[in-house]
């Protein structure tokens, strides 16, 4: 094969060489790879104990579970006489590579950034991980029937939020280096790759073209304006009639980032931890007096969708949904966020 038009920012790796590359990365970085556990694939610290699974779309959990772990220690406390010593966790100096995240999950990181980095004070634990993060994403060549990233303004090949995007072709992976951080992470392993040639890049383009969505993106501003008009719509009661009020949709959502904080331990010593909490739980907003501003199921169901499609947009933050479909897949009551979007999406935008 004659090599023409090779790219210095697109490298190829034989599929069989991937395990060795990952092992080499894991030796120097904090590497998370998607591997199956108990029927679902999730990002786990890389190891040989379980095989790599780049097929399950989407993985059971998103990048959220790495950047915003559940639970997470904020500090330990130890009482010493009357005084108390407070010790936050030690930072990790290594690069943090999350390998194989799809477009939806990579895009969701921007929404997490808005919450954890967009307030008057950044969240230290999140910031610490975010500054080390190198997101090695995977172009999504087999979207699931429950996926709807196109409608949420993205697509299977959307590389936003990624430092490197991998495109799987027949027997090779094409690594597109998108940021300096991505280059820095892979530069030490340059000799394992070859520069991608023109034919390869054409194949990538053809694969991408085959996955272009027929469905147009919603107009989020119009959607916000429409949703906003429906504060008193009886539709929320209809939805709530089946909703079980569990935390599946919020916990598996790559964007939902509400949390609570509690102490685990006793008066002498222990840890203050934060953990995922959900607007679907009555206790989320129930006050010590017993008053609950979102005391019924319709109010809670509405809060979830208002947050995603109204409050986020109103506040200039990324939309609260990236179209990964996890809530569609797992909701026991069959509540499908796509139906809600369709209901409120003004005709003009479709």
């Amino acid at each position: 094969m004659t090599r023409t038009n090779t790219s210095d920012r697109s490298w190829t790796l034989p599929a069989g060489a991937l395990p060795d590359l990952l092992a080499a990365l894991a030796a120097t970085c904090e590497l998370w790879t998607p591997r199956p556990v108990g029927g679902g694939t999730r990002f786990l610290p890389h190891g040989e104990d379980r095989p790599l699974d780049l097929a399950q779309t989407p993985p059971a959990h998103s990048v959220k579970a790495v950047l915003f772990p559940n639970p997470e220690t904020l500090f330990t406390y130890r009482r010493n006489g009357n005084d108390v010593a407070l010790t936050p966790p030690e930072p990790d100096g290594r690069s943090l590579i999350v390998f194989g995240a799809r477009a939806c999950d990579a895009r969701a990181v921007a929404a997490l950034d808005a919450v954890f980095l967009g307030r008057s004070i950044p969240d230290p634990a999140y910031l610490e991980r975010r500054e080390r993060l190198c997101l090695v994403g995977l172009a999504c060549v087999s979207p699931a029937a429950t996926c709807f990233c196109h409608r949420m303004g993205s697509g299977p090949f959307d590389a936003s939020g990624m430092d490197v995007q991998i495109v799987p072709l027949d027997d090779i992976y094409v690594f597109h280096l998108l940021t300096k951080r991505g280059e820095a992470c892979l530069a030490p392993f340059r000799d394992r790759f070859e520069a991608a040639d023109g034919d390869t890049l054409k194949k990538v383009a053809a694969t991408k073209a085959g996955l272009e969505g027929a469905e147009p993106s919603v107009d989020f501003t119009a959607l916000k304006d429409a949703v906003k008009q429906h504060r008193d719509d009886p539709y929320w009661e209809t939805l709530a009639a089946a909703c079980l009020g569990c935390g599946i949709c919020t916990f598996l959502c790559p964007v939902c980032s509400c949390f609570s904080i509690t102490d685990t331990g006793n008066r002498r010593g222990g840890r203050r931890v934060r953990y995922w909490d959900a607007c679907m739980f009555p206790a989320f907003t129930k006050e010590a007096s017993g008053h609950n501003p979102r005391g019924d199921e319709p109010a809670r169901v509405k809060q979830r969708f208002f947050h995603k499609f109204y409050y986020s947009i109103e506040n200039g933050e990324p939309p609260g949904c990236v179209g990964c479909g996890r809530c569609v897949i797992h909701c026991p009551a069959g509540i499908d966020i796509r139906e809600i979007v369709s209901r409120f999406q003004p005709e003009a935008a479709s």
Binding site: V37, G38, N70, L244, C246, G247, I248, F251
Partner: peptide, 15 residues
């Protein structure tokens, strides 16, 4: 091993 995956979403309770 099995319960290590539990995220306390309480779907089992609520269903």
């Amino acid at each position: 091993e099995e319960l290590s995956r539990c995220i306390l979403c309480y779907a089992c309770r609520n269903v």
